[in-house]
């Protein structure tokens, strides 16, 4: 087994390299996602001064305080930009019933993972917010509009 790779093995390795380069080139030239090949459009689109965001928040039963219920990228597969995209699709394509079901699931997950000292929830809300950059202020990004899209009352849902 020792020694340099045999000619057949070299050929196999060269073919694998060629396959990788070809797949990557096709994906890049066509600018299409051909997983696992990709044009890697990370931060490629222009970012304007405004940003629309969807937020799922829980309402504390004790104080009515709003708690953000976004999944942590450290422990969840569906987090960060993938989570945002999923919420966008939910609002765009999903029915009102599907949105309410999703919010109920989020509340259930929160309740399962809730530490003893964390508050219970009485409601879950889905907001759409508009953020604007303001370079002359601090912090230089402010929420300028917030619209409540859906709210579920957990006591009634149960």
């Amino acid at each position: 087994m020792n020694g340099p790779p045999s000619p057949r093995r070299r050929l196999a390795i060269n073919l694998c390299v060629a396959g990788f380069v070809l797949g990557s080139a096709v994906s890049l030239i066509t600018q299409r996602e051909l997983w696992p090949f990709s044009p890697y459009a990370m931060f490629a689109a222009m970012q304007g001064p405004e940003q629309l965001m969807l937020d799922v928040v829980g309402v504390s039963a004790a104080s009515s305080e709003e708690i953000v219920l976004a999944p942590s990228p450290r422990t969840k597969i569906i987090a960060g930009t993938r989570y945002r995209e999923m919420l966008n699709r939910l609002v765009e394509i999903g029915s009102e019933r599907e949105i309410r079901m999703y919010l109920a699931d989020v509340a259930l997950l929160y309740e399962h993972a809730r530490p003893a000292d964390a508050p219970r929830l009485r409601a879950v809300r889905l907001y759409k917010s508009r953020w604007q950059v303001m370079p002359d202020e601090w912090p230089p990004a402010r929420r300028v509009e917030q619209v409540l899209l859906t709210e579920i009352d957990l006591n009634r849902e149960q």
């Binding site: 990370m42 490629a44 222009m46 970012q47 990004a141």
Partner: peptide, 27 residues
């Protein structure tokens, strides 16, 4: 390399010369 080319293909040199990264950083 693909990420660099895609930035140019999608946004052109404006990716550098406009306020694009400034907005990304502030947001």
């Amino acid at each position: 390399f693909a990420a660099g080319i895609t930035k140019l293909a999608t946004s052109g040199v404006a990716w550098v010369t406009s306020a694009n990264l400034a907005n990304l950083l502030m947001l």
